[in-house]
Nucleic acid binder design. Structure first.
Lengths: 337, 337
DNA sequence: CTGAAAGCGCTAACAC
DNA sequence: GTGTTAGCGCTTTCAG
């Protein structure tokens, strides 16, 4: 049943009795044609089941109609939702999405991106990658957009960046926490991430002036499992915190689960807050207070931006996304303040 | 700083003082060379920063080193984990992953796949797509593997299929539930999915002989939100179920959350079980009893298989994956049996 | 072991 | 409006 050989533009031209140039122009809708020719073309294409060979096309145009998207961990709902948003915009604009899951494996990033870069018209990359790779990327003559601000290397570069301002996110959360009267906080971070320092400084900008104590912990990965593993150290040490902030929801959820296992009542004994607002956070118990960073909208925005760059349009100035505080039970009714 | 023009194979040939054919063979490691030539080649490539143009290569070879993966909903952790597994194997074998999120949008599947098919050497597709699209796919002369068994159309076709047997999954869960002594069950399914009927028949094969009553409900999507919406109807009707089975964890979690909101104690008043074992299920409250379908391993297996098909190797017979019952608190201590 | 030459399927000038 | 033609960068016989 399967056609042995795909029809080419030449086959169509022959069948329709026109030249290949005409076929090409017709397919790309580059001009108008006599009704006759148009009709014959339609039929020939239909009959032969012709479709363009993207490789041939991109060889002469230099464009691939494909955009690369590299994320740190596709299993993290935050990133999955970014992919979702990006996918929607890409497909809607006739682009395909080449996805690479970096699996938090910083070491091999360069190699993975090199495979992507030649096959794509532009790249979207998590900013949590080494400075030298960022250098290399920004020197490529190909549009690159970063998810979140990359670590500023020597000599601040002009990088296209989409996503929440980490400082703003942290400040928003810290403000709420301070107003609630918490005074002994633990922050479970992930030092290897670029945004970690920013989130920390956002927190400190609120906590320090208010003399709220902030203990810092470093998870070995930004995951729930890592949160669980670290929980005992965070919760059972001296000066037990009144509230634990996870560097993201996943971590917060992990620490919170282990806290319950250890016998703490949440939030009566210890309160919890995260960052991202992944869908899960509504369904854990107690529902997690967090900051919505609009993951899916971020994915849409960054894709919109990179397409604009590729097509040389002045990027419709993106409506800057602002973090949104989401207050749930994990910070209510804390009793030990 | 950016190179105006990428070096081509011809530039390398000129720089090394050899022919382009030699360069090509060297790059593709197709034969050995005199030490001299090899050294010059190495240097020239290094100096020029040369790398192959994939479009040109694939135009002549007809291969793209890219594999397409279409999933119903990338935000569903089950699928995200399939992508994770598939990504790992693809990258490890020198393939790239072209991802398409179908967003549960059955109507436009054909169109989305058509964009993929020309750019890839093979396709992995969720089986929950219309029979005519499956027909079209299987008639393509390109390897296609399905995630889960597609609805068997008229005249059972020979399709490559990877993933759990839905009947087996359901039977496993039903057996446990029956042994626990539950006798009034509700199943919240998603009729539009191919596997729904199979899961149902798996359940019935255990429940019917045991005279366990099974009420069926149809969610409007296989998501937690849909589960929440449907919950009141499931829980507040006549003959309140003792246990609710979600067609997947997401749905079960949604119904369970709403059950608590409605004032039910879980599992004392009503027990819950899901299918998939997404990471979230460990962290909701109470932790959800479910069946692990090895999402990530499925992603790895299906990618392994499609690569074998592409490369004409006899697929190393895949170690059939078997579902694993995961018993957690959502089915313990039920008191109203 | 190395090279010459013939395309792969298509687009983009440029003629007519 | 339509056709001719020159490549895009690469692999692949086939000679030498």
């Amino acid at each position: 049943m399967s056609r042995i050989k795909k029809a080419t533009i030449r086959d169509v031209a022959a069948a329709a009795g026109v030249s290949i140039a005409t076929v090409s122009k017709y397919i790309n809708g580059q001009q108008s044609f006599s009704a006759q020719v148009e009709e014959k073309l339609r039929q020939a294409i239909e009959a032969l089941g012709y479709s363009q060979n993207p490789a041939a096309r991109s060889m002469v145009t230099g464009r691939t109609a494909t955009i690369g998207l590299a994320v740190m961990d596709i299993a993290n709902p935050h990133y999955a939702n970014i992919v979702k948003g990006a996918n929607r915009i890409a497909l809607g604009n006739g682009y395909n999405l080449l996805v690479a899951d970096l699996e938090e494996n910083i070491a091999s990033v360069r190699q993975m991106l090199e495979a992507l870069v030649l096959r794509t018209d532009g790249l979207i990359v998590s900013s949590r990658i080494p400075a030298d790779v960022i250098d290399w990327l920004s020197r490529l003559d190909k549009p690159v957009a970063f998810l979140g601000k990359p670590e500023s290397g020597p000599g601040q570069r002009d990088l296209v960046t989409v996503g929440m301002d980490s400082v703003e996110v942290a400040t928003l959360l810290a403000g709420y926490i301070a107003r609630q009267g918490f005074s002994r906080i633990a922050y479970v971070g992930y030092t290897r991430a670029a945004w970690n320092a920013e989130r920390l400084s956002g927190l400190r900008s609120v906590f320090d002036p208010a003399s709220i104590k902030l203990a810092e912990f470093d998870a070995e990965a930004p995951t729930s499992e890592a949160g669980e593993k670290l929980a005992a150290r965070v919760l059972l040490g001296p000066n037990r915190p009144q509230l634990v902030i996870g560097c993201n929801d996943l971590v917060a959820i992990g620490v919170m689960a282990e806290a319950r296992t250890l016998g703490f009542r949440v939030p009566e004994d210890i309160a919890f807050a995260g960052i991202d607002n992944i869908p899960t956070s509504r369904y854990v118990w107690p529902p997690l207070t967090t900051v919505d960073v609009h993951s899916e909208a971020t994915g849409e925005a960054v894709m919109q931006k990179i397409i604009a760059m590729i097509e040389g349009r002045t990027a419709a100035d993106d409506p800057t996304l602002h973090p949104l505080l989401v207050i749930r039970e994990s910070t209510s009714h804390f009793q030990g303040k």
